[in-house]
Nucleic acid binder design. Structure first.
Lengths: 147, 147
DNA sequence: GTAATAAAAGACCAATTAATCTTTTATTAA
DNA sequence: TTAATAAAAGATTAATTGGTCTTTTATTAC
């Protein structure tokens, strides 16, 4: 459903939301180590996220990646749309071109409930809200809690 | 989440369950046309399904693919396990290696409800049952209802 | 047996995704 | 102004998935 790139992107954004700030920037290497993902690959993803204004960055010594208050108001649906080319919320689980409420596939009922719940979370909750709820609910994007 | 190969495989098996029998075999070309998928590709998938005893086949004139009563007792989980290399029911939606009830990711709650519902349908219902429910519920695996 | 039919098998090619390597640019601090 | 640092950019390679082509084998009907 999601490419590795999208999975890494979502985890990265939440990692920065939880651990960074304009005063606490984090380097690509550190992010890669913390999330246990390939460093060079995550660097490319970080570039895209910066270009799309989803996260922020600074070059040079003391530089790195971080989220500012504006970034934190974004949502995870935007993260997906930057990385993923197809909209996962519109494609049929069994690949039916016509699948929808009028022409449902044999798992349309189950899948659409799931998609609605996920879309609600990805669209209507800010990155900040999700990061806060991670604290509250004890959910994780890595076990390696560095910093 | 599912590869094209798996999507085609599931649709093919259900197509045969609905339209074929030991007395009514269907050729690869006809299946490809009906489901609107690449013929040569589906031929490869059909081979695997036959080898795994999920569907049946006969060579020569009047030959083709079909499901017999034994085939119809199988389930869609077996179809997946023949085609897909990773178990979609065990991997984390966000790619967390440790994700589970003890170490949930931020969407684990939503995703596990979905997976349970899907697994129940794929594991506990026979192919025959799903095909029957398709009639009852009016769900589809193609709009092109040939035959 | 021969011709036609259709699946099986194996090799092959194309496209996408994943990942890496190298060079450039911007920033900082000495 | 130089050295160090770290992101940006671009090119390249590797792996996986998707798809096609060609040959072989089995079956049927004549």
């Amino acid at each position: 459903m999601l490419s590795n790139a999208s999975k890494y992107a979502i985890r990265t954004v939440l990692f920065l939301a939880k651990n960074s700030s304009p005063k606490k920037k984090i380097g690509a290497r550190h992010i890669a180590d913390s999330l246990e993902v390939p460093q060079q690959f995550i660097a490319k993803i970080l570039q895209k996220l910066v270009k799309a204004n989803i996260i922020s960055s600074a070059k040079g010594p003391g530089g790195g990646f971080y989220t500012n208050t504006k970034n934190l108001k974004g949502n995870l649906l935007d993260v997906l749309s930057v990385i993923e080319k197809n909209d996962i919320f519109s494609e049929c689980f069994l690949g039916l071109p016509v699948c929808g409420d009028e022409n449902p596939c044999p798992v349309h009922d189950i899948v659409s409930v799931f998609k609605e719940a996920l879309l609600e979370r990805f669209q209507n909750k800010s990155i900040k809200t999700i990061a806060d709820e991670m604290e509250r609910d004890g959910t994780l994007i890595t076990l390696k809690n560095i910093i």
